[in-house]
Design a protein around this nucleic acid. Structure first.
Length: 229
DNA sequence: GCGACAG
DNA sequence: ATCTTGTCGC
């Protein structure tokens, strides 16, 4: 794993200050509520980087709960800002939005590759996209960003809470999506509850570590990248 | 002061 | 995220 990380170029402190302020403004707009109705369509999104300065975002649309693919769209654009832990959304969300606009039909809920409120300022990319689209969203991440948790049971379906060590606040749930495979970090984004995020994640599992929406978006983000060269 | 740090 | 071969385990 990433036990030691060599020191990279220090991020511009002014950029960090500005983006953090924008994030705090957006945070006040985040709502948590149950879905208006059982979803008929669910979207999944993810990005890859064909070159260090190019980002390729994919959005897939699946029927729910059958999970049959209805649409897959993508957009290629320039990378606006460097990666800074906690500010990932400013690097990827703009391009994800451009891909999302290409969908002919819109989903009822969006599963995002990354965290929802399981973020230092409760504004992970899933919450960020949800606010900008005013759509129900939740995040499914492969690695923890913040919070404390106890290792969930080793079998598929086991769940343990991800909490803020200081406040005790529930940030998300750590879910074992496949026997003996590293768990997923699921948290609500915007207009979604933890119960809904967890339920939909489990309902989208098909034998792989990642739930279908995210897994397919991840897969095509990699495929389209190859086609570009 | 030390460690942690989505993709 | 990305760069990369073989290899261990179910």
């Amino acid at each position: 794993m990433a036990y030691y990380r060599p020191p990279g170029p220090a991020p511009d402190p002014l950029l960090v200050r500005d983006l953090t302020r924008l994030q705090d403004e957006m945070r006040t707009r985040v709502r948590q509520e149950p879905l208006a109705q059982e979803p008929q369509l669910i979207a999944g999104c993810d990005s890859s980087f064909p070159t260090p300065e190019t980002i390729l975002s994919v959005v897939v649309l699946l029927r729910f709960p059958s999970l049959e693919v209805v649409e897959k769209v993508y957009n290629v654009g320039p990378v606006p800002v460097p990666y800074i832990p906690g500010l990932l959304s400013f690097r990827e969300a703009p391009n994800v939005l451009l891909a999302y606009e290409k969908l002919r039909q819109k989903p009822d809920v969006i599963m995002v590759d990354g965290h929802g409120i399981a973020h230092p300022r409760r504004m992970g990319i899933a919450a960020h996209l949800g606010v900008l689209l005013d759509m129900p969203t939740f995040g499914v991440a492969k690695q923890k960003l913040t919070g404390t948790f106890q290792e969930p049971g080793m079998l598929k379906g086991s769940i343990s809470p991800l909490t803020d060590a200081r406040s005790g606040e529930l940030l998300g749930e750590v879910i074992r999506s496949k026997d003996k495979i590293n768990p997923l970090f699921v948290s609500p984004g915007h207009r979604c509850t933890q119960a809904t995020a967890t339920r939909l994640t489990l309902a989208c599992l098909r034998g792989y570590k990642l739930p279908e929406p995210t897994r397919l978006a991840d897969h095509w983000a990699e495929e389209f990248k190859k086609e570009l060269r």
